[in-house]
């Protein structure tokens, strides 16, 4: 990514320039724009806002929402909350890993899927649960989880 590409961020920086309390909002919108937060982008924000690069890096690595690496087109968030744990979310994770050939935290080679474990999605009564992009899937079984992923794969191969 070239430095000039970062200029897309300027209106956001302008909007939040009033106060340094807006750093998290800036990072959230930047990630929304670029999909992730490359280090050069953090440096760019530091230059423009006069916030120290070390502080920006500190904030970006503190919160789980921020990622410094690109993710796949589909972000699978596997809930690992208490209710999901009690209802065997481990088996769902194994099934998804099995289907995608990756482990937690990785992205598939074709760049389609990234698998992340998350603390709790707040749909505990439907546990075990996973969220793919903005859609929540509840009461999963290992087979069901595999089927959902296969359907996305099928849809994608058609679009290509």
């Amino acid at each position: 990514m070239k430095c000039k590409d970062f200029q897309m961020l300027d209106p956001i920086l302008e909007k939040y320039k009033e106060s340094s309390t807006n750093l998290i909002s800036i990072l959230q919108e930047a990630q929304g724009l670029y999909g992730y937060l490359p280090l050069e982008l953090l440096d760019y924000i530091a230059q423009k806002t006069n916030i120290k690069a070390s502080k920006i890096h500190g904030v970006a690595t503190f919160y789980t929402q921020f990622r410094l690496h690109p993710i796949g087109k589909y972000l699978i968030m596997l809930c690992q909350g208490t209710a999901c744990h009690v209802n065997s979310s481990k088996l769902i994770e194994e099934a998804v890993c099995d289907e995608l050939g990756i482990i937690e935290g990785q992205t598939t080679e074709d760049g389609l899927f990234t698998l992340n474990n998350v603390a709790c999605l707040g749909c505990c009564s439907l546990s075990p649960v996973m969220m793919i992009n903005d859609t929540t899937y509840g009461q999963l079984t290992p087979e069901e989880a595999k089927k959902i992923i296969r359907e996305i794969k099928k849809k994608e191969s058609k679009e290509v």
Binding site: G81, A83, C120, G122, C123, S125
Partner: peptide, 11 residues
């Protein structure tokens, strides 16, 4: 910031 895994009344 309802972070307690297993609670969702605030949501």
């Amino acid at each position: 910031d309802e972070g307690d895994p297993g609670a969702f009344m605030d949501r």
